[in-house]
């Protein structure tokens, strides 16, 4: 694995289980500092479970999750929450709450009963709303926003927590393609400009390959491969992890690996027929409207 040098967050031979059902046994991962790590794998492979363990929501049955060299479960909850943020998959916006008030809740771990709102809190909330492009929505009710806007508000709340590490559990689910790219651009920007370590679970392998700096492929509760997407994403690995025959070509926009599933006939037949898969090349995740904005590779094309 990635050398002996201790990273800030990692799992040390953890066994993860929900009651009796074991999801992963003796699993070890390290999240490289300042990386944008993306965990990928088929459904029910344990990737979300791994993220829950890393965020201390699931206590490992064995082994431990280490944050700055300490077992995360023995640390005070608020202290963890000042170092490690999480964007859960499903959060409920309380009825009648405004964007600014929701984002302000991200300051909770920094506050106490007698220190409820400092000028610093005010500043950080404002900055978080600005860097996610929701500042002009500050006084709007969260229930009135579109799905994409709402996800940005939740990200703003997680940012207001001001944690050097931020975990995101499938942040693009339920969003249309434009907003998926939008959220991922935002993540990339947070990673690049603010030097945060990001860990996300993503479903779309091509998104993962494009945005991640470090990829962890999980299958059946085991880490099958990890490293930079350009090394990890190969046709052989995709078949091994997802059981899908495919070609991996260079993404014409970014040069990152692009997975193109083999055509239906080719997968049904014994051997792959390159001609057929070549025809099937236009990838569903490539929205033509997004292309100009993506010209310069990772360039964030956010505010609109």
């Amino acid at each position: 694995m990635s050398g002996r040098q201790q990273q800030r967050l990692g799992a040390e031979s953890v066994t993860l289980a929900y009651e009796q059902r074991v999801i992963a046994r003796d699993l070890s991962v390290e999240i490289p500092d300042h990386s944008f790590t993306v965990i990928v794998g088929p459904n029910a492979c344990g990737k979300s479970t791994l993220l829950r363990a890393l965020s201390r929501m699931l206590k490992p049955a064995q082994g431990r999750v280490l944050l700055d060299g300490q077992s995360i479960h023995s640390m005070p909850a608020k202290k963890v929450a000042r170092t490690l943020g999480l964007l859960p998959q499903s959060s409920v916006a309380p009825d009648g709450i405004t964007v600014a008030d929701l984002v302000a809740r991200g300051r909770y771990p920094h506050q106490g009963l007698l220190r409820q709102w400092s000028p610093e809190d005010e500043r950080i909330v404002q900055e978080s709303m600005e860097s996610t492009g929701v500042a002009e929505l500050a006084d709007r009710f969260v229930d009135e926003l579109s799905g994409g806007q709402r996800q940005r508000v939740w990200i703003a709340m997680a940012l207001a927590q001001q944690t050097p590490l931020l975990l995101l559990d499938e942040p693009t689910t339920y969003l249309d393609i434009q907003h998926q790219i939008d959220v991922l651009d935002l993540c990339a920007e947070l990673h690049e400009n603010q030097g945060r370590t990001l860990v996300a679970v993503l479903h779309d392998l091509n998104h993962a390959a494009r945005y991640a700096t470090h990829l962890i492929a999980v299958r059946g509760g085991e880490v099958v491969a990890e490293g930079p997407p350009s090394e990890v994403v190969t046709a052989e690995l995709v078949e091994r992890v997802f059981g899908l025959r495919c070609q991996v070509i260079d993404d014409p926009e970014t040069g990152t690996p692009l997975v193109v599933p083999a055509g239906r006939q080719a997968r049904a037949g014994r051997r792959s027929a390159p001609g057929r898969t070549g025809e099937a090349a236009p990838d569903p995740t490539q929205d033509p409207a997004q292309e100009p904005a993506q010209e310069s590779g990772q360039a964030p094309a956010l505010q609109k």
Partner: peptide
């Protein structure tokens, strides 16, 4: 205040250190 955080769901409250 912790109760107010809980209204956003257990996961969100956890993430905030409740």
């Amino acid at each position: 205040r912790a109760l107010r955080m809980l209204e956003m769901g257990d996961d969100a409250a956890y993430a905030l250190g409740v």
